[in-house]
Design a protein around this nucleic acid. Sequence first.
DNA 1: AATGAATGAGCCTTCATTCAT
DNA 2: TATGAATGAAGGCTCATTCAT
Lengths: 199, 199, 199, 199
Amino acid sequence: MAEETKTKRQLQAEQTKLKLFNAAVELLAVQDFEHITIRDIVTRANVSIGTFYNYYSTKLEVFYETYQVADRYFIEEVAPRLTQPTCAQQALCFFEHYAHYSSELTDRNMTRLLYGPDNPWFNRPQDGSLVGVLARVLQRGLDSGELTSYGDTASEIAAWMMISIRGLTYNWCTANGAYDLISATRWSAARLLRAYQSP
Amino acid sequence: MAEETKTKRQLQAEQTKLKLFNAAVELLAVQDFEHITIRDIVTRANVSIGTFYNYYSTKLEVFYETYQVADRYFIEEVAPRLTQPTCAQQALCFFEHYAHYSSELTDRNMTRLLYGPDNPWFNRPQDGSLVGVLARVLQRGLDSGELTSYGDTASEIAAWMMISIRGLTYNWCTANGAYDLISATRWSAARLLRAYQSP
Amino acid sequence: MAEETKTKRQLQAEQTKLKLFNAAVELLAVQDFEHITIRDIVTRANVSIGTFYNYYSTKLEVFYETYQVADRYFIEEVAPRLTQPTCAQQALCFFEHYAHYSSELTDRNMTRLLYGPDNPWFNRPQDGSLVGVLARVLQRGLDSGELTSYGDTASEIAAWMMISIRGLTYNWCTANGAYDLISATRWSAARLLRAYQSP
Amino acid sequence: MAEETKTKRQLQAEQTKLKLFNAAVELLAVQDFEHITIRDIVTRANVSIGTFYNYYSTKLEVFYETYQVADRYFIEEVAPRLTQPTCAQQALCFFEHYAHYSSELTDRNMTRLLYGPDNPWFNRPQDGSLVGVLARVLQRGLDSGELTSYGDTASEIAAWMMISIRGLTYNWCTANGAYDLISATRWSAARLLRAYQSP
DNA sequence: AATGAATGAGCCTTCATTCAT
DNA sequence: TATGAATGAAGGCTCATTCAT
């Protein structure tokens, strides 16, 4: 019975944490990260302020958790779908998912945060991250002769493309989503790729 | 004599405003924009709080003034120096100045602010801005046959390149300047250009 | 036990709010409303500034609450006591309570505020307010022939008397309480009544 | 020549002071006394802040000067016009001018200030003030038998009437001028008089 | 007499965080 | 676990006043 009680508690705790997390993410859709207060979050989550501090020890923590969620999405959902015949198609598909994630699955403020100056998401080891996924796609292209390296490694090319596309995503944010991110990304990525496509 | 008196006062006023402006810029080298307080600024400028509000009516205003300074630099200083023989060289020179401005003339936090989500500096009409300078360079390349348009206009290409490089600059910021921005920019810009260079 | 806990908290909260309210009222006895700061209030109430904002969302709010208190007093305490034989006596009794409230129950600065230019207490619907109480008294006098209407309604007469007496109260305030408000009010009200007493 | 220069200066000084005075009065028509800043005044008067302090040593001073102006108006302009046949008519005429001054000659904020809690205008010796004017009118009525004293002196009656009418004026202010002050004053004054008119 | 840059105490308000319940 | 009253440092900003010019 003690175990059952504990399980109940654990479930409740998980739900409470999820409520807080969702509330935080939802608020990002409406207002700026800097201006979201903990009171906002707990009000939306229908819990008390004290409860917040039972799960997160600082305001930033709840937002950083979103990175992990995004990480998981790319590794587990996107990577397995890159099964197109050519490397270029796979790369474009990769970026399409990337844009889709930024513009559809998460809202603009979330993306803004994701691309914000304090996000440690980028500049992490490529292996096991989404850049690694792209690098492996490009490596296959170099191996098959579909791409020309011009002296750069697959890793370098992947990082370069990611950085450029990140610039685009960020620009889309600051333009308040004034244009369609997915097609803009496809357009840009195609040109980036062309710099390495064998003539 | 009346004139001299008047001039004295005006000079003093200008100096005071400059002291405030410089203090603000200097502080950006040390701490985050959001965490710079007006008290910080006036303390560093050795003036009183009231004096700050004699020259700027809000905290943001002093920082937005930095945009105008940056603007002027590109229009007045950089544009006249793009006299290299080929269009590609001119474009690379342009981006070199761009990187130089971001990494040397201004410090990283300044750049961070300049590239931050609330900066209206980007997404403004190209004409009369630095993007226009780049667009004109590219147009000459298209006209001379040095570049191939692949259906895109000089303006579109310029915007695309700027956005990509912005991504790089921003990445450099978030990596805390871990690498050399100027060579990274040259490296990236060369590859971006290759997507349009005639074979 | 849960109930007891809850009650404890609620009691504490009520007491804290009361402490703030009392501190505000007490300060009115000493200094001008415009010059009472929130810091003054919380210092006197022995709570922190943040606590103030847990109960009132603006400086004015705590003072406006005093109006409601005054309102309740007249409706609940004064009205039931008007049981004298003649209408004139009832009206005089009403005004006596009125003066008593202004000069004794509340202090002069409180009254000053109550009669100040921004107080919405006056100029509200008569029904359910203290003016209504007076109007009903006068109506009985008109019905019984004790008073002559001279074409005016009980409501109009009541408003007229209230306004005049308000002038007296206010004058007493500006004279810094130099005379006895209760007898002055009785004196004035008797004369006001005489304008309507049947010969 | 020294004298001429001095005269010129004096004239200029007087004009400057008048400009400041007028600016202050005009501002009262638009905004609340408490919220009028010295900067507002000097901006409207087209002089510098320093100049203000050449003529007034505090913010209040400029407003208190308005009382004196009002005083003069009643003594010099109103008193000589009270030549109607009956005392009642004279009293009504007096109050009509009183209301006229409050509602027409000065604007509402000015009146508000004039009737505000810090105004020393009331509660001054009757002789030589406007209350004295009214008292003399009433005295003539008592002497001629037109009025009955009921044991009160002309002075007391005058003060009583003034206080009541002041309540009305004040009420009109807080009602934001929602009704016509002149007719309301006439209506009220007629009833006040009736309390002393011989049957 | 006129100027206006400089002052700085002090205002109201916010909000992340703590801790007794 | 959950609560929410209490905290108080810190923020942006106002404005009457001074004084060198």
